[in-house]
């Protein structure tokens, strides 16, 4: 068995990223789409941390913390929008979210 190199982590991260992208593109439930975005951000984090270990530099982890921070902000605002939208349209289907105002 080959030793685990950063490449392994990159491939894992790429796969996770792709699953996230598929989720965003295929699903129509906005909540699931937001969750897929979280998957994508996680894929990025895995990359950052793998490289952080590779280079022996904590900066990758610092950036991962920032990404978690952004994810939290994104989730809060995104879910707020979903709630506001749901209240007006009684749906969370992304296809019906084509209006800029209602």
């Amino acid at each position: 068995m080959t030793p685990i190199t950063p490449v392994h982590y990159i491939v894992l991260s790429a796969a996770l990223f792709t699953i996230g992208v598929i989720g965003v593109l295929v699903r129509r439930n906005v909540i699931v789409i937001l969750m897929s975005i979280e998957l994508i951000l996680n894929a990025v984090n895995i990359n950052l941390i793998a490289f952080s270990r590779q280079l022996g530099d904590p900066v990758g982890q610092v950036f991962a913390i920032f990404i978690i921070c952004v994810a939290a902000a994104e989730a809060a605002v995104g879910l707020g929008i979903i709630l506001a939208f749901y209240r007006n349209k009684e749906t969370v289907n992304i296809d019906e979210m084509s209006l800029m105002r209602w």
Binding site: T5, P6, V7, I10, V11, A14, A15, F17, T18, V21, S52, R53, Q54, L55, G56, D57, P58
Partner: peptide, 28 residues
């Protein structure tokens, strides 16, 4: 996208000179 990224990664495996060998081998 997946194929592309994996291709890049595997390319890295074939030529691991700068990637596979840890520059600073010790994990934190």
């Amino acid at each position: 996208i997946l194929a592309e990224v994996v291709a890049i990664a595997v390319f890295g495996l074939v030529q691991p000179a700068h990637l596979a060998a840890p520059k600073a081998p010790l994990p934190p």
